[in-house]
């Protein structure tokens, strides 16, 4: 953490510990550089998970969350970056190829655009689906009724 702060200065916003787990809040623009540094210098060689959390009332509504693991140190680190609704996040696919499907899922569920992703398409939902279900303003009963009618030939409804 100290080294991260010394190296990236302002882009490194805040270090915190929650339930004994290390979390680094960073600037989203620097996500790729910091990821590369974490992998090469700090030996966080595996991207365990990449996901997002939606906080619609905040100015920048999304948290992009990366869970890293280092085999050499047997340690975990969580990188977190705030991203706005129409603000793309840099893709980390070239650093960890594992990010490919995780970023696609994130795009699918939250509508976060990852810049530099080789194939940013929906992965779990149908390609023509409208809306991003894991956003907080997407109601649990909501469906893309047009898609359901057109493709399944039924009226959707609970």
């Amino acid at each position: 953490m100290q080294r991260l702060k010394a190296r990236f200065g302002d882009a490194f916003r805040e270090a915190s510990l929650d339930r004994k787990q290390a979390i680094a809040l960073i600037a989203v623009e620097q996500l790729r550089e910091i990821s590369r540094y974490c992998r090469d210098e700090e030996k966080f060689d595996m991207l365990v998970d990449l996901t997002a959390v939606d906080w619609p009332k905040r100015e920048k509504r999304f948290d992009v969350v990366l869970n890293l693991y280092s085999f050499a140190k047997n340690e975990r680190l969580r990188l977190k970056a705030h991203a706005g609704e129409n603000e793309p996040a840099p893709s980390v696919c070239e650093i960890w190829p594992a990010a490919n499907w995780m970023e696609r899922e994130c795009y699918d569920m939250f509508g976060i655009v990852f810049e530099g992703h080789p194939n940013l398409t929906r992965i779990l939902l149908p390609d023509e689906w409208q809306g991003h279900p894991l956003r907080k303003d997407y109601d649990i009963l909501k469906q893309d009724t047009d898609w359901v009618r057109e493709n399944l030939g039924i009226e959707s409804g609970q």
Partner: peptide, 8 residues
């Protein structure tokens, strides 16, 4: 196969 995914 009319239903389901369709990027294909």
């Amino acid at each position: 196969m009319g239903s389901g995914k369709s990027g294909n």
